[in-house]
Amino acid sequence: EQLARLKREFNENRYLTERRRQQLSSELGLNEAQIKIWFQNERA
């Protein structure tokens, strides 16, 4: 579920704002660094 949600977010926007990253962190139970790194890896 977390992965599917991250992929949906990535398809909508390849870059997250700090606020959006905080929201996802709270909703998915991941820390902000994990989300940031995931997005960086997807863009690579």
Rank of each mutant, 00 (worst) to 15 (best):
E1K: 07
E1Y: 09
E1T: 07
E1V: 07
Q2D: 05
Q2A: 13
Q2R: 08
Q2I: 15
L3S: 04
L3Q: 08
L3H: 07
A4R: 10
A4Q: 11
A4C: 14
A4F: 01
A4S: 06
A4L: 11
R5Q: 06
R5L: 06
R5P: 00
R5S: 05
R5E: 04
L6R: 03
L6M: 03
L6K: 02
R8K: 13
R8P: 00
E9V: 07
E9Y: 07
E9N: 03
E9K: 05
E9I: 06
E9D: 02
F10L: 03
N11V: 09
N11H: 12
N11W: 09
N11R: 12
N11K: 13
N11S: 13
E12T: 10
N13T: 04
N13E: 03
N13D: 07
R14D: 04
R14I: 07
L16F: 04
T17F: 03
T17R: 06
E18Q: 14
E18M: 11
E18S: 14
E18N: 14
R19L: 13
R19M: 12
R19T: 13
R20N: 04
R20S: 05
R21L: 15
R21D: 02
R21Y: 12
R21A: 15
Q22G: 04
Q22C: 11
Q23G: 04
Q23I: 13
L24P: 01
L24F: 02
S25V: 08
S25C: 09
S25P: 01
S26R: 15
S26I: 15
S26Q: 15
E27C: 10
E27A: 07
E27Y: 04
E27S: 04
E27T: 04
L28V: 06
L28N: 01
L28S: 03
L28E: 00
L28F: 03
G29L: 04
G29R: 03
G29N: 07
G29S: 04
G29C: 05
L30G: 01
L30I: 11
N31T: 15
N31K: 08
N31L: 10
N31M: 08
N31S: 15
N31Y: 04
E32M: 07
E32N: 03
E32F: 04
A33F: 13
A33R: 08
Q34P: 00
Q34M: 14
Q34K: 06
I35L: 09
I35M: 03
I35D: 00
I35W: 01
K36M: 15
I37S: 12
I37Q: 13
I37N: 10
W38F: 11
W38R: 01
F39N: 01
F39T: 00
F39S: 00
F39K: 00
Q40P: 01
Q40T: 07
Q40F: 10
N41S: 07
N41C: 14
N41A: 10
E42L: 10
E42H: 07
E42K: 05
R43T: 06
R43D: 06
R43K: 07
R43Q: 10
R43N: 13
R43H: 09
A44F: 09
A44Q: 12
